[in-house]
Design a protein around this nucleic acid. Structure first.
Length: 506
RNA sequence: CGGGGCGUAGCGCAGCCCGGCUAGCGCGCUUGCUUCGGGAGCAAGAGGCCGUGGGUUCAAAUCCCACCGCCCCGACCA
């Protein structure tokens, strides 16, 4: 049995496997700055594709981009009580604006600021200040703005992509005339995230509302998309918040309504971050590394010329010809991205490097292929033993449909995985067993999503979390999962009106 | 911030208990030759303030103290 490229394998040590995939695929690495990462070109190209796709979805739904400051005056953050409480513990604060030579030759901060500046952990307050200025009449609404930015949250424990001190994201901030409009916007953007996850990332998600315990500080309602990783834990992959009039009140976003009375705007905010990349790795990756969904992959095909010694025998030219033909093909509305890897390294090693990077299609091309007008194809979503030879022209013309097939296959695979590990559990014992590892010394991958009844009390929710490390990921919105259905709370046995989604989470 | 583990070559590690020649090994790197439908073989090389500071000692990677950093598990979180 051949070895896998990544060690340990997923079922041996999942967290370590995750780190190794990031390294092997050359996506990112730790930086000298604690908790911060360097996103390397292959990882950043993936993020750029995520940005481009989401950005066009935002534009399609009427949003425009803008940019607000990195620094937030301390007093702004103090305006919304719950918001302060939620973020106070993880804020980086700028207190000085100058460096002076110290006695030992080092530099010491000087020039203390009158009012400290908080490095934005999120931008509701600073954007709210602008909106307050911009909005005077109901005619100024709605405001539908998104910003692509970095934010800083001083986390205790960090993991590449999943939780870093600084991360990249987009945050949409909208202000509306009516409650209904803001509410609709909240759900519309949640659905944009769901579509993006499923159609672009090939990641199936559960959409739902957060419980009070898990809600965004200052929001009236928080909605999220939750995806299942291959260790069966949930990853909150995007959030959309209905902020009611809380932030409008705090920031003074007031307008003269149609009735001539002063009113507060209704606002929303919604975001996804580089965390999505962590999700992509954990949903699709295998024991040989990353697997990129074709729709977001920085490149679709790599051509590997197999050259004997110095004698090229026309292989390079043959590769260039194929590359040209492929680049004229379109898939998912874009031209195919093709790489020819002519690095002077061992062919096997070269091939493996692309497997680890997760490029959807790897094509080996040697003199024999040249002679037969064929190519040797390896789909990254299939095993290495399933490589096959194919006529060049057929290969070129079938690439778009092959990529679509891979995209669909990844989604299908992830979907059945999630379905297989989503249970409707009604017994407390069964519930506990589901979430309890059999070998406590070296916990194996276990559990999954449990759709179970919940009475609605914080105390049950917290106890489940304390005892089992399991939280309520959301109250699902999907018709099938969410249909009200009387039952008994999985924990206390009291009356429950509906099932909620329980899972261990990142 | 609590509990545990670890800092030795670019990466992964051994050596430390029981102090003692020139600090090793694997991978990677450089050069040459050989190989060539596959993560190559042989040979010759380059590369270390053994995390930092202090102490004990004739002698410290090794023992003691302090500090710094990293990882895991908890609390917190996109």
């Amino acid at each position: 049995m051949a070895e896998s490229a990544i060690s340990p394998r997923r079922n041996e040590n999942y967290p370590e496997w995750y780190q190794q995939v990031i390294r092997a695929a050359d996506l990112a690495e730790n930086s000298p700055v604690r908790g911060c990462m360097v996103i390397k070109p292959w990882g950043y190209a993936l993020w750029e594709n995520v940005q481009a796709c989401l950005d066009s979805l935002f534009k399609e739904t009427g949003h425009v981009n803008a940019y607000f400051p990195l620094f937030i005056p301390l007093s702004f953050l103090e305006k919304e009580a719950e918001h302060v409480e939620g973020f106070a513990k993880e804020c980086a604060v700028v207190t000085h604006h100058r460096l002076e030579a110290g006695p030992d030759g080092g530099l010491i901060p000087s020039g203390r600021l009158d009012e400290p500046l908080v490095v934005r952990p999120t931008s509701e307050t600073i954007i709210g200040a602008s909106y307050a200025k911009w909005v005077q009449s109901y005619r100024d609404l709605p405001i539908l703005i998104n910003q692509w930015a970095n934010v800083v949250r001083w986390e205790m424990r960090t993991r590449l992509f999943l939780r870093t001190t600084e991360f990249l994201w987009q945050e949409g901030h909208t202000a509306h005339e009516t409650r209904q409009e803001a509410w609709d916007e909240t759900l519309r953007m949640l659905d944009v995230y769901r579509r993006f996850a499923e159609e672009w990332m090939a990641v199936p998600v559960v959409t739902g509302e957060k419980t009070a315990v898990e809600r965004f500080p200052g929001a009236l309602n928080t909605f999220s998309i939750e995806a299942m990783m291959q260790d069966r834990k949930a990853l909150q992959s995007g959030t959309s918040h209905f902020l009611g009039q809380n932030f409008a009140r705090a920031s003074g976003i007031r307008f003269l309504s149609r009735n001539g009375v002063e009113d507060l705007a209704w606002t929303t905010s919604w975001g996804v971050s580089t965390r999505l990349i962590g999700g992509l790795i954990m949903v699709h990756g295998d024991d040989d590394g990353m697997i990129m969904p074709p729709r977001l992959s920085p490149s679709h095909v790599v051509l590997l010329p197999i050259v004997r010694g110095e004698k090229d025998g026309g292989v390079a030219a043959y590769c260039r010809e194929i590359a040209e033909q492929l680049r004229r093909q379109t898939c998912f509305g874009k031209n195919l991205q093709v790489v020819i890897d002519e690095r002077d390294i061992n062919a096997g090693e070269k091939s493996w490097s692309w497997i680890k990077k997760g490029i959807p299609v790897i094509v080996e091309i040697g003199p024999r292929d040249l002679q037969n007008h064929s190519v040797f194809v390896h789909r990254r979503d299939r095993s290495r033993r399933e490589r096959y030879s194919q006529g060049k022209d057929a290969f070129v013309s079938s690439m778009p449909s092959l990529l679509k097939e891979i995209q669909d296959n990844l989604l299908e695979r992830a979907k059945s995985f999630m379905d297989d590990h989503t249970k409707r559990i009604d017994g407390k014992k069964e519930f506990e067993d589901f979430f309890t590892p059999k070998n406590t010394d070296k916990p194996e991958i276990h559990g999954g999503f449990s759709l179970s009844h919940w009475c609605g009390n914080d105390s049950c929710e917290k106890e489940v979390n304390d005892r089992l490390g399991v939280s309520i990921r959301c109250i699902p919105l999907q018709p099938g999962d969410a249909a009200p259905e009387p039952g008994a709370c999985i924990w206390c046995g009291k009356k429950s009106l509906r099932r909620v989604l329980f899972a261990k989470a990142y």
